[in-house]
């Protein structure tokens, strides 16, 4: 055989050929499997193991003792656990639902070929591109009790603003954080829903109009079911993202006042990177992982039950 000839698989020795052939699918997915194992499975399992030990870096570099489920008991009985879980669920559910509804409304407006829509579409993507930490700082100024824009607007509209500031009052702080998330992520829903609505053939909508369906019926019975798959997936992704909210909380309120804006994500940060209580934070992590996975599993089960994929 010439040195310049390209060797085809057939030219390989029988043993090598059959090895490559037999294992080709596995070889092709191997890199992603290795990545997943290294970056997700290993840390999770490491955390699982750590969660059964008393291990605080402020006390010593190594785990000190096997404590069984003590960390879990401690995590659930912690002063902030219930508040953090409630706040997290409120943020995730209300945030996702509001962002989806507003995003859908904006998408429907975008579909009307009104003048200037190209500019609007381009502008809409902007909030999504800003890092959450930057958005956090931005809103810290907007919410500032001494001259922040939001405060000023609310006062100008004769709406009650707490004396201690929007972020300083337990009654408004969580809503303020929710508002930031909605501000940043509604455009994302709008654009994704807009794109999937564009894929709905005009003829189907026209057929429905001739079937005498009202605009509302067309939305509920034709358009929404046709973008259902996309909607299910973005709602799921966004729910999981909000569930882990921590950066905006860190910048805006550090979980306060009291525990009024504490989220599971923020508690994890505090236990792990402020108190360095590795054992406890591992247990908390696993509790959060279980909760979010149970919710997502139920959601996926009910959402995809009738789908033929």
């Amino acid at each position: 055989m010439h040195a310049t000839t390209i060797r085809s698989p057939q030219a390989l020795s029988p043993v090598r050929k059959s090895f490559v052939r037999r294992n080709l699918p596995y070889l092709l997915i191997a890199p992603s499997v290795v990545m997943l194992l290294g970056l997700i499975a290993y840390p999770l399992l490491f955390a699982l193991k750590s969660s059964f030990y008393f291990w605080n870096l402020q006390v010593g570099p190594q785990p000190l003792a096997f404590v069984g489920l003590d960390n879990y008991v401690q995590a659930i009985n912690a002063f902030d656990f219930r508040a953090a879980l409630t706040n997290t669920l409120i943020l995730s559910v209300v945030g996702t639902a509001t962002e989806f509804s507003l995003g859908l409304a904006i998408a429907l407006v975008l579909l009307k070929a009104l003048p200037g829509m190209n500019v609007v579409r381009a502008l809409l993507i902007l909030p999504t591109t800003i890092a959450p930490i930057v958005v956090g700082f931005l809103f810290r100024y907007l919410y500032d009790p001494g001259g922040g824009l939001v405060t000023w607007v609310l006062q100008s509209l004769w709406l009650p603003v707490p004396a201690e500031g929007i972020l300083g009052s337990p009654s408004t702080a969580l809503a303020a954080i929710l508002f930031v998330d909605i501000w940043q992520w509604t455009p994302f829903f709008a654009i994704v829903i807009y794109a999937s609505l564009l894929a709905v053939p005009d003829e189907i909508i026209e057929a429905a109009r001739l079937d005498r369906a009202s605009a509302w019926t067309i939305l509920m019975r034709i358009k929404l079911p046709l973008i259902r798959r996309t909607a299910i997936i973005i709602v799921m992704l966004r729910f999981m993202q909000i569930f882990n909210t921590f950066d905006t909380v860190l910048v805006l309120t550090r979980g306060g006042p009291g525990t009024s804006t504490r989220t599971l994500g923020y508690s994890l940060y505090e236990q792990g990177l402020v108190n360095f209580n590795v054992g406890l934070v591992s247990a908390q992590t696993w509790i959060a992982v279980l909760i979010v996975n149970i919710i997502v599993a139920l959601y996926v089960f009910f959402a995809f039950r009738n789908e033929e994929w």
Binding site: A208, L210, R212, S214, P225
Partner: peptide, 30 residues
């Protein structure tokens, strides 16, 4: 909506997420 006219489209424009029955019943349900 108000003309009471039925149209058959070139690409049929059936509602892909509905069964044949639902496709045919949709206009009547309205």
């Amino acid at each position: 909506q108000d003309r009471d006219i039925a149209m058959v489209f070139q690409n049929y424009a059936l509602y892909p997420h509905m069964t044949v029955y639902e496709n045919m019943a949709f206009g009547l349900q309205q």
